[in-house]
Deep mutational scan, measured.
Amino acid sequence: MATGGRRGAAAAPLLVAVAALLLGAAGHLYPGEVCPGMDIRNNLTRLHELENCSVIEGHLQILLMFKTRPEDFRDLSFPKLIMITDYLLLFRVYGLESLKDLFPNLTVIRGSRLFFNYALVIFEMVHLKELGLYNLMNITRGSVRIEKNNELCYLATIDWSRILDSVEDNYIVLNKDDNEECGDICPGTAKGKTNCPATVINGQFVERCWTHSHCQKVCPTICKSHGCTAEGLCCHSECLGNCSQPDDPTKCVACRNFYLDGRCVETCPPPYYHFQDWRCVNFSFCQDLHHKCKNSRRQGCHQYVIHNNKCIPECPSGYTMNSSNLLCTPCLGPCPKVCHLLEGEKTIDSVTSAQELRGCTVINGSLIINIRGGNNLAAELEANLGLIEEISGYLKIRRSYALVSLSFFRKLRLIRGETLEIGNYSFYALDNQNLRQLWDWSKHNLTITQGKLFFHYNPKLCLSEIHKMEEVSGTKGRQERNDIALKTNGDQASCENELLKFSYIRTSFDKI
């Protein structure tokens, strides 16, 4: 039985969820670079991206490699990797027998973001014989899940209580170790020597080791999670996991709180800001991140802002960003909400898709409305799209047979046209069989910064309504002859009103 693990408890099935942008060198404390989270699957090609990484700022997932063999891993080693800020997950990587050479110096898994409450997941690794993470000293947050690894031993010899604050939620089941077939031998045991430290858990006094050649490092209890030197002297209180010299914040392997210019500090002093819960960055760093993602459509890219001495992905609820200094300031009234469309555009074809934009005031991208039916549609669209004030790209209304009016965009005031449909149009209306009105132009103002209007096959939309939009939106004169079809717009509506004058002759039985 794995020490510190839980057996036999019912657990939810383990679901495996399925960018080499360097964020800056980590400095003297770390020998390499800070790398983003990685999802490495199918083959070993991307694994080489770990070569210079000291910190993975995010998670590391290595999974679904069915053609790899043990010899493929023999020359692979990433000794610079010290810390993973989120979680480490391995799933069905064939041929991998140990992690001792792959990650010989991995010391800390912070667990800032977890995989279903777990910071370390080893699942269905069919050839893994031992973990071998002999320098792993601290899992700051989260638990361990090690399950269905039929060859995995050296679990009962690990004292997880020396690595985690609590072992109650560890789930370590259905491994070879369960069948008591392992016969784990710690260093020196074969020669009758006791080389590794022994600890007591559940009444068992057991030597602690990761492999037959690597003991588990056990520091004096007084050192807590700070770690200790090879001689057993406690590291500085700002260290986490390990250090090369005692009581020196510049000799830590990793930091308990924050890293700044080669030393570990309790908090980031001005003019620095907390970033990702582990390091200090200056304003320029946060500003660069903001600008890199301002026009990016890459998933996970955030326009970072500053709030409460932190550089964070977005302002919290009730705050909006001051564009001059990136500071989050309290909103006066309802907060603006910028919604970034991942692929640059979004099609609204149902109430469900409209709900995804609920509360958005600025759309960074283009909207395509293609709704053919739905219950209580006008009210639903207004509830979900009615706060949109600005669209950076274009607005396209296409084959939306259920629409009679666009009044559900009740606050839309600006279409920038930074991206144009077919390279020309910022407003595009095609084949809307029941569209009769755009907006009530006596109450609604709309500016279209650039781009043209396109109207074709809107049989109940009168040309007068379209011409009014040209005047109000500032697009009059931009359109070419064929942009607004004269014969297919309003051709099934009563669009022309003329005053009919009647004269009559009164007659009676005795007068003409």
Rank of each mutant, 00 (worst) to 15 (best):
N257E: 09
H214M: 14
N179G: 10
R298L: 09
V206P: 15
H28L: 10
T157V: 05
N242K: 05
P269Y: 06
H214S: 12
E238R: 04
L64S: 00
M83P: 00
A198L: 09
D86C: 01
C182V: 02
L128N: 01
F66L: 15
T320V: 08
N322S: 14
C252S: 00
L50P: 01
K217S: 10
S161M: 14
P31S: 15
A198S: 06
L131W: 02
K294V: 05
M38K: 12
P36R: 10
K310V: 05
K67V: 10
D277I: 04
A254K: 03
L155M: 08
R141V: 07
F123P: 00
V218F: 11
C235Y: 01
S317W: 13
C228M: 03
G95P: 01
Q245I: 09
F258W: 08
C215L: 06
T199F: 10
S237P: 12
T85L: 07
T157P: 07
E97W: 08
D39E: 15
I139Y: 01
E238W: 07
I158D: 05
I158Q: 08
I201D: 10
I163G: 01
S284V: 04
H59M: 09
I56K: 00
S166F: 05
F283D: 12
V253D: 14
G318F: 08
V108P: 00
K148D: 13
H290C: 15
K191Y: 12
K294W: 13
F258K: 02
L99Y: 01
E231L: 08
G262Y: 03
V167M: 01
N105Q: 10
E147I: 15
Y171M: 07
G142A: 02
S161D: 04
M125K: 00
K129T: 14
T229P: 06
C182F: 14
P187L: 12
K129Q: 11
N242M: 10
E33G: 12
F205H: 10
V144L: 08
L96F: 02
C196W: 01
Y94D: 07
N170I: 08
C286H: 03
T229Q: 07
L120E: 00
R298I: 10
Y273I: 02
C301F: 08
R297C: 13
K193T: 12
L155Y: 11
T211R: 09
C228S: 03
A119G: 11
K67D: 08
E57I: 08
N117M: 11
F258A: 10
W160L: 06
N43A: 07
H127V: 01
P330E: 13
S225A: 09
H214E: 09
G111S: 02
C209E: 05
R279C: 02
N295W: 05
I185M: 08
K292S: 04
R92F: 07
T211Y: 06
Y87D: 00
L96C: 10
V55T: 04
I139C: 02
D165L: 10
P249I: 04
S237C: 09
L164P: 01
T68S: 11
L106W: 01
C335A: 05
N282D: 01
C331S: 03
W210N: 06
L289M: 15
F78M: 08
G232M: 02
E231G: 15
L60A: 02
L332S: 01
C53H: 00
I122L: 10
S244Q: 05
C153V: 01
